[in-house]
Design a protein around this nucleic acid. Sequence first.
RNA 1: GGACGAUUAGCUCAGUUGGUUAGAGCGUUGCAUUGACAUUGCAAAGGUCACAGGUUCAAAUCCUGUAUCGUCCACCA
Length: 706
Amino acid sequence: MDKVYEHKNVEEKIYKDWEEKGYFAPEVNPGGIPYCIILPPPNANAPLHFGHAMYVVEDILIRYHRMQGDAALWLPGADHAGFETQFVFEKHLQKDGKSRFDYDRETLYKMIWDFVQSNRGGMEGQLRKLGFSLDWSRKKFTLDPDIVAIVYKTFKKLYDDGLIYRANRLVNYCTFDGTSFSDLEVVHQERKSPLYYIKYGPLVLATTRPETKFGDTAVAVNPKDSRYKEYVGKDLDIETVLGSAKIKVVADEMVDMEFGTGVVKITPAHDFNDFEVAERHNLSLKQVIGFDGKMNEYAGKFAGLYIKQARAAVVEEMQKKGLIEKIDESYVNRIGLCYKCKNVLEPLPLEQWFVKVKPLAENAIKVVKNKKIKITPKNFETIYFQWLENLRDWNISRQTVWGIRIPAFKCEKCTKWIVTDGKVPEKCANCNSNKLIQDTDTFDTWFSSGQWPFAALRASRVSTDLKTFYPTSVMETGRDILFFWVARMVMLGFYITDEAPFKEVLFHGLVNDPYGRKMSKSKGNVVNPLELVDQYGADAVRFALIYGNATGNDQALSYTKLDGARKFANKLWNMARFIEMKRVQSSKLKVKSYEFEELLKEAKNETDKEWVKKTQGLVSEVSKYIDNYQFNLAAERLYEFIWHEFADKYIEDVKNRIDENSYLILAALYLILLKLLHPFMPFITEEINKQLGFSQDLIISAWPHD
RNA sequence: GGACGAUUAGCUCAGUUGGUUAGAGCGUUGCAUUGACAUUGCAAAGGUCACAGGUUCAAAUCCUGUAUCGUCCACCA
């Protein structure tokens, strides 16, 4: 054996060997109890980040269960990540001086497809480098035709059940990226927004958005407000920058008498609150901002200006005309930004497909309340309930090319929509016209990935997988996608299969930079996990991520911890070298695997016997910790026992009195330690196992029982 | 405006049914060793467990409140 453990000579070779022998497939344990984890499918196009390295938790569980004889399936997949990927591709185009507008839909889709395919292997190779025992023979992609077919069917079923409807509503629209978003994708930010007090005839009202005044269709006051009682129901004659106009005054509870002057302008086409007021009072919608982010013809001489320019111009004009009473420059409010490009999102009226979430959310709440799904750490249950209880309908239409195109067709003649499960209808069911046009929008990526557990298993290469592995054992993922993904999977999974898609949810925290700040490209503090794998070895990286980090907590990347883990691996290696060295010195010494009971009988020396019992105790401790998802405690206990008890005390003791019998005990106990450590540090333990000549590969060996 | 987390040694963090002198890694100090160990071993120093109350025979742990930091959610113009 080499004097120092060299991970670079070992990891790739071992992984290849495991994979070729088919160990990652659940079939290695025929007849075993099914145990299944679906890998949260990483973006097919993007390299891995540290969040993905935390999937080591899943590998620990899978390896542990595989060793216990379960038919353990860890199913890999890749997500097409619709808008995200298109966004990245557009950046890519930009470098060549092009944009998405330079290509037709089909060409653009094909280009992105090729782009994704050429990058896809990268992500998969990285998962391999981390030692993840994924069953690659079952891998799925969210754009596989069989998956797409399932997504279509779900859409049709929801539509037929009245849970999907098309409506013209205000949506969060990014005029730069040219698409709408769901509420979840909006990031809110506090900003200083000057509050303008504008004269509206006899009234004064406060607004942060004077440029939208051309879209006002009413002015509102609180019905209890005695100051304005006389105006309610009347039309006001007002002077505006575009000349004189008439505007109606309505009374609505939504108006806060304390805020501003207690008078609000109602701009239904450009404000979510106002839209609701308009519905209550039957006010018309007047859109004055276009989807290109510019003022339209209703803005008179301001038409063609971008929103920001228009605001400045309108304010200037108003000031000239004496229409502004005062400006509160220090006012701060929260505005919605595009989570990707960080530009201000515009509320704009647009026809979109919406999912009626209430009935779905009620079931999603129920399955957790009924303990059909257990969430760890438990405090995430509260967050989960709160979100589901206050959910608004989900806009699933995206104006992007990269994604699953919505199977809805509009009749040009009678304007009715026909929803199918993917087939192109020949004629309109309503008027028999054959002029049908498919919706150009694609699904929100989360609509398809929300179906992933049952879709991936139903479309699996092995036709019985859905029956065998669904609901899956545990959904382990980052706590940041509780709403985006986990809640949606429960809603859609339960809707389609009448069962919760998984029995448990297990969250891991974020890996932050060494100073505890969130890693982000814009801050430039992103650390590539693969670089650390190269430097420290996959086992050390895995161990460092688990050790000293309580389940679900965020952690700061720690180089000293990585170093500690690497040294631990080296210690383990040298313990093996000691055992190997003794064997070389005497041909009588044998290395073999034993059960604890046999060992207790075999052991002649009292101290040896004691260590058999201690190791036996360790087995039950570590098993219990893993069963309870206390991986940190399992890792800490193993570290402590292996190094400071087994090596420092036992090996030091047995060193100078070693004989055939003691050696047998020592080697057998060491093998047990290797097994216990294997889920955490798979490569080095397997390599040592080989070097010492134990007969069976560790990955499929039986977990010791105490 | 709500919710959730964190606060323990110089630093980074463990400590999940409340139970002897509160632990680890790194760092610091001293000693030893070239050994299975690109080191390792032995030992030491270092903590009013954020603060204030409460429950209990017993609280880092449970309860109430406060403070600071962080995160998430929310349509006040």
